[in-house]
Amino acid sequence: SPVALPPFFMRGSIIQLADGELKRVEDLKTEDFIHSAEISSELKIDSSTVERIDDGQTPNAVVIQFAVGELKAQVCVEVLLEYPFFVFGQGWSSCSPDRTTRLFELSCAKLCVGDVCVSLTLRGLR
């Protein structure tokens, strides 16, 4: 079932980076994720390219198929339309920017096939 949208996507939420710095969710940049992952002992950033976006099981859900990491591993996630992903060099993006803005006041671009999203994996996982 689709993952409900957690509270930290609300505009103004305070996010702690790996070096301790605090930023608002709407002010996060690609470098913040990259730098935080660099100094993390367990987590590593992957590039996950959106390959397909299909309707989900419920009217407000979508199934997004990603090609994850260098190996282009195929991973599907079902999320609500308003769920934001962070696109490299672009920032927050969702399948329904209007809904994300309305529900969470978080400005979003439209998530499209071909977009490359920030995702996490474990260091040393192969």
């Binding site: 930290f8 305070i14 996010i15 591993a73 992903f85 996490l120």
Partner: peptide, 19 residues
């Protein structure tokens, strides 16, 4: 004010078994 860790905001996409 709650403070959330950076890694909560991006998905953990563990590759599944490839076909």
């Amino acid at each position: 004010v709650p403070v959330f860790p950076w890694h909560s905001l991006v998905p953990f996409l563990a590759p599944t078994q490839s076909d």
